[in-house]
């Protein structure tokens, strides 16, 4: 059976078409209209797979926008979907770390790959993809640029985890003439400390799989792995893990 998973995140909307394996996938910016983004990601992914909408047996929606679409047969939270996707890609996964656009989470899986516990960050942007985006913006860099800039630099210590306060702190440091590289390294450090704080509330068991678009950035992966003292497994295309999990659940 052909199934589809659509993960409507706060930043990006991802769709995966699954039929024994991934047949097609697409990512579009969520923008201000999550419904349109979901439909457009669905169209693109089906087109890539060469499958007509009528052939799809089930669609599961996940992500913060999961409430908004009548095409979904079911809605499942991103916690369950990320766990399912990560376990499918790497059956040894016992912990999933996901840094999304508006929240970050650490998920514990049992031997069968089922969620046994999870923890999410508080309701603010500290430790999320949004934090990175805002800080990269202050330095006039892209996310990738932020990573390469940070490589090898001695991180400056930023005391603010809050996206608003950290921005003022960085502007202050720039005014003092501190090197951009050190600030970039400090920003990654802040994210890693935040994830470390979250992860401290759940026993981190191997294998730790890192999902979400942020995991595409090797510099961030390195810093987080160093802070947690674990090896991170980053699947190919970590951004699609939630949508893949949703497609797998739709195929059940």
């Amino acid at each position: 059976m052909v199934s589809v998973g659509i993960d409507i995140g706060s930043t990006a909307t991802k769709a995966v078409v699954f039929d024994g394996g991934v047949r097609g996938r697409a990512v579009v910016p969520t923008g201000w209209e999550p419904r349109e983004a979901a439909l457009s990601a669905l169209r693109d992914a089906l087109l890539q797979a060469g499958i007509a909408e009528g052939q799809v047996g089930g669609i599961v929606g996940t992500g913060y926008g999961r409430i908004s679409l009548p095409i979904f047969d079911r809605r499942v939270t991103e916690i369950t979907c990320h766990a399912r996707g990560a376990h499918h890609l790497c059956p040894a996964t016992r912990t999933v770390i996901d840094i999304g656009g508006q929240d970050s989470k650490v998920i514990a899986l049992d031997e069968g790959g089922m969620v046994s516990d999870f923890i999410m960050n508080d309701k603010c942007a500290a430790g999320t993809g949004r934090f990175l985006q805002v800080m990269a913006g202050v330095l006039d860099e892209t996310l990738d640029g932020l990573g390469s800039l940070a490589a090898g630099a001695e991180p400056v210590s930023l005391s603010s985890m809050c996206a608003v306060f950290a921005e003022s702190e960085i502007i202050g440091l720039l005014a003092k003439g501190l090197e951009k590289e050190r600030i970039a390294a400090g920003i990654l450090d802040t994210i890693a400390r935040r994830v470390q704080g979250l992860a401290g509330r759940i026993a981190l068991r191997d294998t730790v799989t890192f999902t979400g678009g942020t995991a595409n950035n090797p510099a961030i992966c390195r810093v987080i792995a160093a802070h947690l003292g674990v090896k991170l497994h980053v699947p190919e295309d970590p951004q699609f893990v939630g949508a893949l999990g949703a497609a797998l659940i739709a195929a059940d």
């Binding site: 499942v76 939270t77 991103e78 369950t80 089922m114 999410m120 309701k123």
Partner: peptide, 30 residues
């Protein structure tokens, strides 16, 4: 399974709480 929810009386975190609670109920429903 156990879930701690730290919140206040305001409605500002309703959507975030929903994700946690739905995910927790998904664990319980198994």
């Amino acid at each position: 399974p156990f879930l701690q929810i730290e919140t206040d009386y305001s409605e500002s975190d309703t959507e975030q709480l929903k994700v946690r609670i739905e995910a927790f109920l998904e664990i319980l429903a198994r």
